[in-house]
Design a binder for these strands. Sequence first.
RNA 1: GGCCCAGUAGUUCAACUGGAUAGAAUAUCAGAUUUCGGCUCUGACGGUUAGGGGUUCGAAUCCCUUCUGGGUCACCA
Length: 595
Amino acid sequence: MNINYSEHFTPILNHFFQSQHNVTIESYEFQSTRKEFEGDLTLVVFPLVRQVKIRPDDLANTLGNYLLNELEAVLNFNVVKGFLNLVLSDAFYVEQFLKILNISNYGHQIINDVSPIVMVEFSSPNTNKPLHLGHIRNNVLGYSVAKILEANGKKVIKTQIINDRGIHICKSMIAWEKFGNQETPSSSDLKGDQLVGKYYVKFDVEYKKEITTLTKQGYSEEEAKQNAPLLLEAQDMLRRWEDNDLAVHKLWRTMNDWVYQGFEVTYASLGVSFDSYYYESETYLLGKNIIKKGLKDQVFFKKDDGSVWIDLTAEGLDEKLLLRSDGTSVYMTQDLGTAQKRLEDIPQLKGMVYTVGNEQDYHFKVLFLILKKLGFDWAEALHHLSYGMVDLPSGKMKSREGTVVDADDLIKGMISQAKTISESVGKLDSLNDNEKTTLHETIALGALKYYILKVDPKKRILFDPEASIDFNGNTGPFIQYTHARIKTLILKSDKDLLESFESLTELDIREKEVIKQLEIYPEIIILAGKQYNPALIANYLYDLVKSYNTFYQNVSVLGSTDITQKAFRVALSEKVAEVIANASNLLGIDVPNRM
RNA sequence: GGCCCAGUAGUUCAACUGGAUAGAAUAUCAGAUUUCGGCUCUGACGGUUAGGGGUUCGAAUCCCUUCUGGGUCACCA
């Protein structure tokens, strides 16, 4: 990675290659030197060899001598197989640290009126059942990517498209009408989404009973599935909904409102929020104007039965339906229309991120391709943030088999586990009950989010709640704990000793390592933003915490007798705490001051 | 079957997108400490990167191929 070093070394290296060899080098490959060799910074010379036609070792030696003469920061060098290892002075690292010490919100770009606007869509639930573990990954990922984009100087609009209409919600409605006895969230003491979900399950149970009855009467299974009275009623209700039947719409609104209230509770406990909402009931008819344009531009074609298609066989894909023969729209049509609508709503929009599971990879590939073919210039700036499924140690989640993990239940379970663990290890007796509860929630959510985010989004996750909440190892609580410890350490330190330490010339090797980590931080944010990948931040955080911990354990932070060094260590600790807090924030994780 | 994604210590994950001897955590084992078979420290063990071939100074990473797991190929959303 080209970390900050490049700004320091690139000019002088460029000068060397210009004057000595008359060639221009595009970029240099720097990396930090592996532990087993002497040095701090390593320049890989192999890529340069091609351009100047000198043997790797010779070039490395020449370069080493050159840098040694030209730069004060370079104290020494050695060459191993085409790797030029440079030993940099402690003064150099002190200087680097001083540079970043007083930058507030270090690593995070500032957002102003001219910042590009990006929309990040996530969550996007159906309104017929509560959120589950899969939604948690979606929410946590989308929210984190939104934060990371903000840190990269984008103005982010967090949004979701709510799938609030269709046969699934009609099923819940029918079941509630028939079996619900006017039950409401307040009468049942259930969260609204849980209540509606209960009737969705009820529908399925009763529907299956009807199928059994019908097959006993001699229907084939297929016929029974299609002709079960309950299903016919649900389908009829959907028709009435589409005809704007007042009674149906009233019930629909009531039940959806219950669900939204329930969702809000879950979102609040997850610590995610949204800036705008799109409802499918308002967008499902969109996109037909795009179809017209596409037909006119001959990007699409019409079949004899009147249905509209696009032929993507040249791109290695299939033909894709865009409009049914009866003229009604499909999923793809809606998404085309919704994308266009968003640009109408916010003309300055510079990009959109769709946080949707990888089972829809194909859909988004086609969606983006169509928009490009239609000639929309903004189609280049669309990104599908695709993620893998969440598996449990017990196996795959299947809603039909009742093995889904409910989001609220999971969070509750994590909190009570956090409570158990922190009570058995903690010394939190001075906190009052409210503070303790808040802390347990913070730890539980930190554990949950970190566990999910540290895995590359596109990979499947095996979710083990027990392992996630461990206070040791690569976990959220461990990071939170380190932050808390630094905070109490700083409290203990004498603030007055924080005088100038620019004169400090000798660093402990472990202090150097911490400074190196701090230097990389802005680069990590940029990289994570480019790749829409919070896992980079998570793993970086762990590395930082680990290197700080070896520093903390082996170098007495406060014990030094040298006042300058003591001040330096406190300042370094403070900066590390700040970076931990800021980086955690990018993952949506809170870090307590004590725990 | 076509297309897409994944396959890395026993397990859960890394590896700065082509760089040096593939790293952590956890589990296991050994030692230290200890009035707990708990906690905490120290160390060790653990790998043909699913298999095979290729590209080059250099491959877990790129290309080809085989295998395994998952997803997707609806006038569903």
